[in-house]
Amino acid sequence: MPGHDDGHWLPIALIPLATADTVPRAQNPLARPILPMDELPAHMRPERSFQGFILALQRFWAEQGCVILQPYDMEMGAGTFHPATTLRALGPKPWRAAYVQPSRRPKDGRYGKNPNRMQHYYQYQVIMKPSPPNLQELYLKSLAAIGLDSSLHDIRFVEDDWESPTLGAWGLGWECWCDGMEVSQFTYFQQVAGVECAPVAGELTYGMERLACYLQGVDHVMDLNFNGREGVDKVTYGDVFLQAEQEYSLHNFEHSDSEMLFKQFVMAEEACKKYLAAGWKSGSNQKEHLMALPAYDQCIKASHVFNLLDARGVISVTERQSYIGRVRDLAKACGEAWVHTEAGRAS
């Protein structure tokens, strides 16, 4: 990696990539190794480009047998809310998935001014059920794949017990530190949606912007090189998201329609309960649920609406607890329904 002059290096590197890209994949997609970083064109290298960084992780986890999903099409506070994690973590069936999840935390908006706090950011999420015995090693390999060399960098697992009061979930694990910076969370789920995990799933969450800032040596998230190009072709994170951060901060803190949101919360809550009630299949001798996923969508919705109301400052301290409790009740009921669906039960 070090020592290359970018100007000279670029065209040389394109040749092996083209070869690698066409011939072996067609013959045997499984036999193809992960592309060594030195063979990547500069604009695709994880330390040069935000999207290159995402693709490096996608490629790495694909090699570990994960299904590479696309983001869930709803607003949510963290990758954990994606049904591919929350619901798939439940039940006995094996499951391995990885995906980017745009995450919305209305309260964290800073009108685009804070170097690392935003109301919208990306999480990279990996879920493996049951947790493989070498999950820590896989994680460390993934860091190597994005260019963090463990002979140069101080990588540490520092205690972090994870709990999500809105999801009725908890697990034990660590925050993973690289040279003193928290770059990921590593959790062995013990309970999700009020249901014991059997078997336990391992969850990895990478803070994408923070890691990318570190890899690119950039202090402000808006300065991240998004597409890895230079000069006129360069697109920064700020080019893509700065305006959004400003607009959504204005919306979340000052203008979001509280009256409508309060209604939406209740609507989502009621809909969730309604779908859950309607989903239980009658007449069969086995307890079976047919609508856990649509019901869970409403739980996600309620959670996000609550976050918006919270950011707007219209929920008092005591009410806050009760709202969290209401979302948790929905999550638990969805979890209960899920373990009686095809994907959530034993057979």
Binding site: P133, A198, V200
Partner: peptide
């Protein structure tokens, strides 16, 4: 103070618990 289950065996009841795997 807090212990956990992990891996394939955590599916069974009576699985070993430890502070981390």
């Amino acid at each position: 103070p807090k212990s956990m289950r992990w891996g394939e065996r955590s599916a069974k009841s009576g699985a070993l618990t430890w502070v981390r795997p």
